[in-house]
Design a protein around this nucleic acid. Structure first.
Length: 281
DNA sequence: ATGGTTGAATGTCAA
């Protein structure tokens, strides 16, 4: 085969803006409920908050239709793992990230796009969109409980408790009565039923700490407000179902953590909002 | 009481 002609060098790619690694490591999570529908809110938020990493869930877009160009044009790196119509996860970041994993199961098995594992500045990042579960007597709920059990196995195998790691995303469980507005009325809800809460607790056991609760012990702090009821956000009838979970080293490094409720009140909002943590480097 | 809204896809399902 003839030697290829020396590649003509195009105009050198614009040098990436140097990323300043000063200050805390800022890690955020957001269920976008369609990343394409949420692009205005997303880009405005990134510009204002300047996180190192944002984990996104429910992108609802196949990879070949993912709006990477507009995200990159705004100066961000992005990696994504999606499917048609439902689910889908992504990492948006200041520096490029490398995909380490996107499956719980062997390649031969069909699997929904609900998991993405990467790493940033020495911290392993696990981004999950846990199944919602539909109803506690449904197969979807069984699938939700199994997902937690299989994720636990994944953590047992791949994420030592002594390592620096954050498990984050929409976990679709409110862990305690103060994590939702109406615990009494939601005993049989797939996001508060005792089996879902125990599945989450079992997956966390011995490894993961709910970082928000390290800093805030009180009720009324939510990340999700259902679209299907009027005025839920205005009345703060919500659920805390999005999390940053940290291994012990990340608990030690946690500086602050907060929920940014403002995006939920904007035009065309997601039903979730952003949760942000800052860690010492 | 089993609604309501939104998004993807264009039926209706998922949340």
């Amino acid at each position: 085969m003839p030697k290829a002609a020396p590649k003509k060098t195009a105009a050198p790619a614009k040098a990436a803006k140097p990323v300043k690694a000063s200050g805390n490591l800022k890690i955020a999570t957001f269920n976008a409920n369609s990343i394409r529908a949420r692009m205005p809110i997303l880009l405005d938020w990134l510009k204002k908050e300047q996180p190192d990493v944002l984990a996104v869930q429910e992108t609802k877009v196949q990879d070949h239709e993912f709006p990477k160009d507009v995200i990159q044009a705004a100066g961000w790196n992005v990696i994504f793992h999606g499917q048609k119509s439902y689910n889908g996860v992504a990492f948006i970041s200041k520096k490029p990230m490398t995909l380490l994993d996107k499956r719980l199961y062997p390649k031969e098995m069909e699997e929904q796009a609900r998991l993405m594992v990467s790493e940033y500045d020495g911290v392993k990042l696990i981004n999950t969109y846990i199944p919602q579960g539909y109803a506690i007597d449904s197969d979807k709920y069984k699938y939700k409980l199994k997902f937690f059990a299989d994720l636990k196995k994944y953590f047992d195998k791949n994420v030592p408790a002594a390592s620096a790691a954050i498990w984050m995303g929409d976990l679709n469980v409110a862990p305690t009565e103060i994590d939702l507005n109406n615990p009494k009325g939601n005993k049989d809800h797939p996001c508060f039923h005792i089996d879902a809460r125990e599945a989450l607790a079992a997956t966390m056991k011995g490894k993961w700490t709910d970082l928000f609760r390290e800093k805030e012990k009180g009720p009324g702090h939510y990340t999700f407000w259902d679209m299907r009821q009027p005025q839920v956000f205005e009345k703060n009838l919500g659920w805390r179902i999005d999390f940053l979970m940290g291994t012990p080293p990340m608990v030690s490094r946690l500086q602050k953590i907060w929920i940014d409720t403002k995006p939920r009140g904007l035009e065309k909002p997601s039903d979730h909002t952003f949760l942000i943590g800052e860690f010492s480097r």
